[in-house]
Structures are given as structure tokens and as C-alpha cells.
Design a protein around this nucleic acid. Structure first.
Length: 477
RNA sequence: GGCCCGAUGGCAGAGUGGUGAUGCAGCGGACUGCAAAUCCGCGUACGUCGGUUCAAUUCCGGCUCGGGCCUCCA
């Protein structure tokens, strides 16, 4: 099997993946701040790292995937103040919405999903270590990380302290020793969530929670840290600084993976810009929409920017229609250990080993589709086989089985094909079948006018007929 | 202003130092009573100016344009 290689943001180059413990791969991905519905941009890392995790699971005996829930944050506080809804209600509801939306996109839950508020003691312990190690200081109820105490600061995001100050947009506050120092702990007034600590009643800064939760579930060193590219600085830079300084000699994450931004009209989709569309908006388009959006995301390499349009969503849907048309056929099922099926599936997935090249893997899925169509419906795959350098002559059902297996690793094509094609209002199924039988009778009698009239009537109610060698099948448009 | 990334045919999007993926749309053919589905075939591309090379879309540099980060942000 081809060895895995990923682009490591920390070194800005492609590196062979060698886990710290080949028996147990560990990864941490930054999760949502639960104050509002997830937007399309929020969904990208969830889908991307879902595929990565599925890939790792089929190659390593054990994988632990941790993704946090940030349920203490000033944006949540602000939302509660605006709406009057209690914080706990907002975070509980938003977390449930997030789970539902991500499941609709075919994402499996992480192994651990810690909440920040359940790990305050860990954060306090971490901050105490940082103070003891001379990397943090308390001032006016705040605790700050001293950036100048850590020589490696800026290495991850590739910027020097001078460069960061050149922008001169860092917040200057009287309690800071240096402008670049960032908050680990801050005081809370009575109306705000707070926890008792050695520095008084307060709440954690944003960055410290990920350091605390990755430490708890994965230890001081683990394999992969993922997240959106916009988190590289300052969030991940600060996380790294905190963790390495709290545990001298440790390296924190070995590989840093960052997904590119999702754009709309050429601009980053974000809540602060107000140009976002929620996942829920997409899902409301129909039962097909979740998987179509997932395919849309995976048709672009994870590190590239992706411009979202509704046309692309429709295109992804049409492509899934074609895949499901094939899978809906009554095909013979190959043996469990069919060698050709395994070989074809492995070939289709091979591109994932090269920095998660999902677009190329999807191209190979299409090739498997053509091979199955040729085997089942007829035609020639000579040029296709020559292009891919293979001599496969799969029998009916073999390429389809490989397609199913390979697509499963991408989290695609898992829907029941009949449900995909004929889902929706189910109470007219008998009437449709009856109409098809009537049309068949008309065709036998060569009454083409009547046959076409029935077909047109069905089309008017959104039902498309397909006359195949095995009889007539139908789907909803 | 600083740092980073990108620029491929009508659209989307891989990849490669030399015989130019793939999908959608378009065109032609096979099949079909006619369609649909399916199969086969066709066309247009590598932002720009230089450099290296026998050979560059692919490597290097300048320029232009676009995006991201530097502040909450997936």
C-alpha cells in the first residue's frame, strides 16, 4: 500500500506520514463555537477531516479523533445578552443542531467531543504550569502568555515578532507587558460565566481550551492537528506555544493540516462578513442536498479555496443521480474476497494517500462507473483502460462493488439507491407503477401515442422513465 | 504596509520536464418506435514577460490579477 503523505503547514512541505505510535494514531481538530447554526465554511473542515479519519482507520489498528465544542466564549455571551436566552440553552441547542447538520453531511462523530466548560480545571492546571515555567504572568485579574519568553513563537505560521507588530493591530492593554502577549485567563463580572481560580473569578481565553483538551485526551504529543487555514494565526500559533511551554521538551502536534477557505462571490464566507449561508439552508433543498454538498466539497482539493455556487450544488446532485442509477440496478454481488474488486477499490482510493487528493479519487470512481456500465449495459472501455494502464475486464457487479467500497471511504454513495431515486412522497408509488404497466401494454400494442401520453403525464408530475434492457425503471426528477 | 497561497479549455477541476486527466455544458455517432439512460467519438487551456533546458503548462525570477492571515473567524 502506498505510504501516506501530507502537506505539513508547520514545514510548508509534503511529508511522509509516520505516526508517533503506529498502533494508535491520534488527531485533534478544532470544533465549533456554539452560538449559531453552522455555515457552509464551518462544514468544510468537518467533512475533510472525516475523510482523513476514515482513511486512517482503514490503515491503522486504532485511531482517536478528538474534536472540541467551545461553549464558553464572548460571542455566546453577546448572543445571550441580545436574545435573553440563557447561555446553557443556546449552547445545548446549537450543539444539537451542529450534530444533526454534520450527520446530514455524512460525517461520523469524533471519538471524543469534549466541552470547554467540562475542562476548566485542566485549563487552570495548564496556566499554573505556564506561570511556574516563567512563560505567563498574572496582572489585574488576567493571566497572559509572555510571547518573548518563547523563542519558537511564530515558527508555525512563519512570521517573526517584528512582522506581527508591523501590522500594529494587536490590542494594546495596560496589563500587557508586550503588545503580542495574549490572554490565558480573564476576569468575569457577575453577569458573565466564571469559575473560581487562583487569579479570582474568571473565564479562560480562547486558545487555552484546545491545549487543555488535546492534553487530556491525546497527551502532550500527538500526530495530527487540523483546522481551517484562518486558525493558523493566532489560534494555532498560540496553542502550540502554550502546550510546548507547559511541557518543555514536548513537540505538541507532529503534522499540522489546514483546509482552505470556502468562498462565496470570491470572498471568504464568514459570520463577521455576513455573507454566509447555513448548512441548514442547503439541507432544506431536499433529501439529496447533504450528500450533494459533501461531494461538492470533495471535488476540490482540501487546501485550495473553493467558491460556492448553487450551480455547483446542482451539478454534484446530477452526478450522484448517475452513480445511483447504476447502483439501483439489480447487479450480481461478487464474493466477499473477490480479488479484482479489492484491486479496483484500492486503485480508486490510492490518490488519498497523496495529501488527500479527493478530486482524483472521485475521477477514479467515475472510471469504475463506466467500467460497470460497460460490463452491464454494453460498450467498450478500451480507451479508458488504456488511459489508466489496466487490463481489467470486470464482470457484471464487480466494478459496482469496488465503487461502493471506495466511495464508502469518502463517505459517499451510502444512501439506498431506490430511496435516492424514488424518495419523497411515497404514497403515489402504486399509481406510478400502474401507469408504467399501462404504458408497457400500449407499447406492446404499438400504440405509441398512448405510450407517449403516459410518459408525458408522468414527467409532468416529476417522474422520469428509463427503458432499459431489464425493463422500465423510474426516478423522481 | 508585512507574511503566505493561487492563476489550467464556456464552467468546474486533477496532473505532469517531452505523445496535453476527468466531470458538467456543447457537437456528432451507436442504441431506441421516439425518448431517457448507457456507450463511442470531437472541439477549445495551462495569466504575462524573461531565464534555465535538446525540450516548460510543469523548474527559477520580475510583473499583473485574485484570495487568505496580520483583529473574532473553519
Amino acid at each position: 500500500m502506498t505510504e501516506l503523505a501530507f502537506h505539513n503547514s508547520a514545514t510548508r512541505r509534503r511529508e511522509i506520514f509516520a505516526p508517533l505510535d503506529p498502533q494508535h494514531v491520534r488527531l485533534y481538530v478544532c470544533g465549533p463555537t456554539v452560538y449559531d447554526l453552522a455555515h457552509l465554511g464551518n462544514a468544510r473542515p468537518v467533512v475533510v477531516f472525516d475523510v482523513l479519519t476514515r482513511l486512517l482507520r482503514r490503515r491503522y489498528p486504532r485511531v482517536t479523533y478528538v474534536r472540541n465544542i467551545t461553549d464558553v466564549d464572548d460571542k455566546i455571551n453577546a448572543r445571550a445578552q441580545e436574545s435573553g436566552e440563557p447561555i446553557s440553552a443556546i449552547t445545548a441547542r446549537t450543539t444539537a443542531d451542529f450534530h444533526r447538520d454534520m450527520a446530514s453531511l455524512g460525517c461520523l462523530p469524533p471519538d471524543e467531543e469534549p466541552r470547554a466548560t467540562d475542562n476548566i480545571d485542566r485549563m487552570v492546571a495548564l496556566i499554573e504550569r505556564l506561570i511556574a515555567n516563567g512563560h505567563a504572568y498574572a496582572a489585574e485579574g488576567h493571566v497572559l502568555f509572555s510571547v518573548s519568553s518563547y523563542l519558537g513563537y511564530g515558527a508555525l505560521s512563519g512570521r517573526s515578532t517584528e512582522e506581527m507588530l508591523a501590522g500594529a493591530r494587536v490590542e494594546v492593554a495596560p496589563y500587557k507587558r508586550e503588545p503580542g502577549d495574549f490572554v490565558l485567563w480573564k476576569p468575569s463580572t457577575d453577569g458573565l460565566p466564571g469559575w473560581d481560580s487562583p487569579w479570582g473569578r474568571g473565564r479562560p481565553g480562547w486558545h487555552i481550551e484546545c491545549s487543555a483538551m488535546s492534553w487530556r485526551y491525546l497527551g502532550t504529543e500527538f500526530d495530527i492537528h487540523g483546522g481551517g487555514h484562518d486558525l493558523l494565526f493566532p489560534h494555532h500559533e498560540n496553542e502550540l506555544a502554550q502546550s510546548v511551554c507547559a511541557f518543555p521538551g514536548s513537540r505538541f502536534a507532529k503534522y499540522w493540516l489546514h483546509n482552505g477557505m470556502l468562498l462565496v462571490d470570491g470572498e471568504k464566507m464568514s459570520k463577521s462578513l455576513g455573507n454566509f449561508r447555513t448548512v441548514r439552508d442547503i439541507l432544506e433543498r431536499g433529501a439529496w442536498a447533504g450528500e450533494a454538498f459533501r461531494l461538492l466539497l470533495l471535488k476540490t482539493h482540501y487546501r485550495a479555496a473553493l467558491d460556492y455556487t448553487v450551480e455547483r450544488l446542482d451539478e454534484a446532485r446530477a452526478e450522484l443521480d448517475d452513480f445511483y442509477a447504476l447502483l439501483a440496478r439489480d447487479l450480481p454481488a461478487p464474493e466477499e474476497d473477490d480479488a479484482l474488486v479489492a484491486e479496483m477499490a484500492e486503485w480508486a482510493l490510492e490518490p488519498l494517500a497523496d495529501d488527500l487528493n479527493t478530486p482524483l479519487a472521485i475521477t477514479r470512481l467515475r472510471d469504475l462507473r463506466t467500467l460497470e456500465n460497460v460490463a452491464t449495459v454494453g460498450g467498450s472501455a478500451t480507451n479508458l483502460l488504456s488511459r489508466i494502464g489496466r487490463t481489467w475486464q470486470p464482470g457484471s457487479g464487480q466494478a459496482a462493488a469496488a465503487l461502493r467500497a471506495a466511495a464508502g471511504v469518502l463517505g459517499l454513495l451510502g444512501t439506498d439507491p431506490q430511496a435516492w431515486r424514488q424518495g419523497g412522497a411515497a404514497d403515489d408509488t402504486a399509481a406510478i407503477e400502474a401507469a408504467i404497466a399501462a404504458r408497457l401494454a400500449a407499447r406492446r400494442a404499438k400504440d405509441w401515442a398512448e405510450a407517449d401520453r403516459i410518459r408525458a403525464a408522468l414527467a409532468a408530475q416529476g417522474v422520469v422513465l428509463e427503458d432499459g434492457p431489464g425493463g422500465t425503471t423510474w426516478r423522481r426528477a
